[in-house]
Design a protein around this nucleic acid. Structure first.
Lengths: 115, 115
DNA sequence: ATATAATGTCGTATAATTGCGACATACTAC
DNA sequence: GTAGTATGTCGCAATTATACGACATTATAT
């Protein structure tokens, strides 16, 4: 996102946008759900369960890994991908704080006093 | 996202990805925070408070509007943009459900039993 | 050592996003 | 009406994302 003028926004806004971007593709949502549903996951299996090529899935995995949302440990010939549940909980709190802040003001409901 | 193979994913996954995408740019996060901080907002004012041109801000506003996250009522010469707090609350719940599901399984912590 | 299997990386084509200037539209005021 | 103000839309350029085939890499097995 070098082209985007991200530098001018607060670190908080950038952080939220970064994580939101990671979730902004159904394949990545599906990958996280898949990892959550199992205790051990292997990249090959993931590609097998998604309607995408192995290459593309690998790419999505790298994106999630770059944000540390998932981790991959090499275990012999296969790679065991796991969720970083600790970070996910932090991210959840960030989102919650954002949504709570955004929904606190009720005045602008349709027919409200402001418009 | 016509090029993306979204059709092959569940409606739930697509919905979460759609909303995440709306939040995937710091400018849009900033816009929502700005609207939340005021009871009445006008598009021109928004552009004035962001490090982006009026055109670009307008574009981001349209994206948020397309998802119905914000609403704009024409009020004479100006447009009053408001948050759709009801929808935002629903979205918050969707995200919470997703994160709770994702963080339920603790078994894959570093040094856990699976890897 | 050689074959097989599991993954990652590279290159490339296509599509979507971002950003903004220039123009169009619509409303207000006079 | 005309002038001025507030916004939206169009068109273009630069950047980034998406998708995948072909190749590289690494480990296991025989």
């Amino acid at each position: 996102m070098t082209y985007a003028k991200t530098a001018a926004f607060t670190e908080e806004q950038q952080q939220l946008a970064r994580v939101a971007k990671a979730l902004a593709h159904p394949a990545r949502v599906a990958i996280i759900q898949l990892l959550a549903s199992k205790k051990t996951c292997i990249s090959g299996d993931i590609a097998a369960e998604l309607p995408l090529s192995r290459t593309t899935v690998s790419q999505h995995l790298q994106e999630l890994k770059a944000l540390d949302l998932i981790r991959g440990e090499i275990d012999g010939l296969t790679v065991c991908y796991c969720l970083n549940t600790e970070l996910l909980r932090q991210v959840h709190q960030q989102f919650t704080a954002f949504f709570v802040e955004s929904t606190a003001n009720e005045a602008c409901a349709p027919g409200g006093t402001c418009c």
